[in-house]
Design a protein around this nucleic acid. Structure first.
Lengths: 157, 157
DNA sequence: TCAAGATGATAAGCAGGGCTATTTTAAGGC
DNA sequence: GCCTTAAAATAGCCCTGCTTATCATCTTGA
């Protein structure tokens, strides 16, 4: 067996999963799911987005966003307003009922960040952050390379 | 908008998602899913597990493992052997057809780890690792507290 | 011994992701 | 102006994961 406990990728994955599960449990007590909460937070920051824009922001497929919005709309948290200029599009807006939920999410986030940061020296924290960012850059640049390569292959150059 | 790009939790989450998606894409080219690959790797390390044991190892619910095994069995990669002593249980074993897949997974992992580590000084890498481990410990101890509290509440003490 | 509880597997139903394909509508190219 | 292409949303299907419930089978204690 590999020493997975000492593999940064594995630990990170584990930790992300733990945080995800914890958040899921809290969200459930509010009658929400994680995906729904994240969508609300993004809409709060930038109202009037189309579903495609939201999908790009969340880095998921438009169809996934569409179904999350279905539920948020049914729950009365979001409304789809037709775009006056482009009849293909819906503009997404929060409704008043979403405000208490958003407040809960913000409280949960602030408390969590404070608790995790507590007891970890700033320089260590920042170092961890910078290493993760470096890895992320690498992955993103690799993905870009791959995308460029496939594009070239498709165009036949 | 919060400075999410500088929030360790968000970056970690993002990065974990990126790695997950990348692996999913590769697994798909082999005709596999990530969950199936992970199950194969665990079974390789410890053949003869029951589904419950595998579920505990993967930290998912037994029903989830059951369905993954359904597919792996249908594909001829795994077999369920009845336990001679306990007729409730199935013992899981790899079949020969799984060997090439396992080799691909191992190659992918080794290459990925090497690439991410490349260019990051060892001390930085280890610092990042230790910060993540500290956060993980905190979350786990909090969960334990919560579990103990609910247990106390249930038992009426 | 036998009834009650614990455990392994599975089913049903819901939610969130993905992929592929379709429909409707805009935007450009001729 | 017409025709082709691109974009927005959606439908259908699959896989994974959760919760809750069911069934069969141990295991244990009165």
């Amino acid at each position: 067996m590999q020493p997975n406990d000492q593999d940064l990728a594995f630990v990170m994955h584990d930790l992300a999963r733990l945080m995800r599960v914890r958040f899921d449990q809290h969200a459930r007590t509010w009658g929400m799911t994680r995906a729904q909460c994240v969508a609300l937070m993004k809409l709060k920051c930038r109202p009037g987005m189309s579903q495609s824009e939201l999908a790009a922001l969340l880095e998921v497929e438009p169809i996934t966003v569409g179904r999350v919005i279905d539920r948020l709309e049914a729950a009365g948290f979001v409304e789809r307003r037709p775009d006056p200029a482009d009849r293909r599009m819906h503009r997404l807006h929060l409704r008043d009922a979403a405000a208490p939920i958003i407040e809960k999410i913000d409280e949960y986030r602030a408390a969590g960040i404070a608790r995790f940061h507590d007891g970890v020296p700033d320089e260590d924290w920042n170092m961890a952050l910078s290493v993760l960012l470096r890895i992320k850059e690498k992955i993103l640049s690799e993905s870009a390379d791959t995308a460029a390569a496939s594009a070239t292959a498709v165009s036949g150059e």
